[in-house]
Amino acid sequence: MAKLLSGKDVAASLNESLKKRVEQLKQQHIQPTLAIVRVGNDPSQCAYERGAIKRCETVGVTVELHTLETTQTQADLLACIQQLNASPTVHGVLLLSPLPHGFDLHEATACLEPRLDVDGTTSGSLARVFSGSGNGFAPCTAQACMEILHHYNIALEGKTVAIIGRSLVVGRPVSMLLLHEHATPIICHSRTQKAHELAKQADIVIVAIGRAQAIGAEYFSGNQVVIDVGTNYSEEKQGLVGDVDFDTVEPHAEAITPVPGGVGAVTTSVLALHVVEAAEKRCSQQE
C-alpha cells in the first residue's frame, strides 16, 4: 500500500509556522493584508474566496474584499488594481479568474505590480519563477506541489520528475521550481509521443491535465512518488476525483497524494505564505 501524502498535514505545518511569522510582523506594527478582487458572483470563485479567507484568518492575515459587478467596466477593474498597487497597507492581491465576458484578464494582470502578485499570474512573477530572482511569486498550485515534496522529505536533487501537463499554472512553473532544486524535469503533454514510457522512467510524477482519472497504471512502474494536482467532479463516484485513477495507480506507487485532501488542501496556505513573505520583504526594505 502506498504512503498517503496528506495535504492537510502539510497545510497544518505551514499554518503553525505562519502564525509565528505574522506575530513577529505585528510586533513591528505590520499587519499582513491580502486584497481579493472578484468580478461577478461565480460560485466556484466565491467558494475559493471563502476558503482563502478562512485560511488567512487562521494564521492572522487580514483580508480585504473588492467586488465589482459584471455591469461595470474594464476601466473600473484597472482603477481598482491601480488603487491596490498604491496602497501602503496591502501586501498581496488575488485577482480571481476567469473574468466575465467583456473583461480582459491579460490587461488586468499586466496592471498588477509583481510584488503584490501572490498567485503568480503576472509576467513579472513568471519571469521570477524562470530566473530565480526579482519580484513576484510562483503560482500557488505549483508551489503547493513543492511544499508537499519538502514536507515529506522527498529528495529532489538528481531525481527525474515527469510532469504531465504544460499549463502556466502548474506544468511549466513547477518544472522551473524543480530545476532550481537540481531535479531533472521532463514535461509531457497532449502531443508527447509515448508519454507513459517517459513517466515510467521517472522517480516522481506530477499530473496536472484537468481530466478526471485520465492517467492509469500504464504510466507507472512502481516505487514512484505521485502528485495528483487534478480536482474533478465524478458523476459515477458522486464526489471529487483527481487526474490520476487512484484505485488502479495506488498499488503501483510508493507514495501518492489523495483527492480531495492533497494538493488542493495546501494551495490556500501557500497563498497566505506568499502574503506573509511579501509583508516581510516590504518590512526589510523599509529598515
Rank of each mutant, 00 (worst) to 15 (best):
L5A: 01
S6M: 05
K8V: 13
V10P: 01
A11Q: 11
S13P: 06
K26V: 13
Q27R: 13
L34P: 11
D42N: 15
S44I: 15
Q45F: 12
C46A: 15
E49F: 08
R50A: 14
R50Y: 09
T71K: 06
T71F: 09
D76P: 05
A79M: 09
A79Q: 12
Q83I: 11
N85A: 11
P88Y: 12
V90L: 10
H91I: 11
V93C: 08
L95C: 13
L96V: 11
L99W: 07
H101V: 15
D104M: 06
L116S: 08
V118Y: 03
V118M: 05
S125N: 02
S125Y: 07
L126Y: 13
N135D: 15
N135P: 02
P139G: 01
H150K: 13
H150T: 14
N153M: 10
A155G: 07
V161A: 00
I163C: 00
I163Y: 02
I164A: 00
G171F: 05
G171D: 03
S175E: 09
S175R: 03
M176E: 12
L179Y: 14
E181M: 12
A183F: 10
I186P: 00
K194D: 15
H196V: 10
A202H: 04
D203F: 06
I206Q: 02
V207D: 00
I209V: 14
A212V: 06
A214E: 09
N223I: 14
Q224L: 06
I227W: 03
D228Q: 04
L240G: 04
V241G: 01
D243H: 05
D245Q: 04
D247W: 02
H252A: 12
T257W: 04
V263Y: 07
L273W: 12
H274M: 05
A278M: 10
A279I: 14
E280L: 07
R282L: 14
E287W: 06
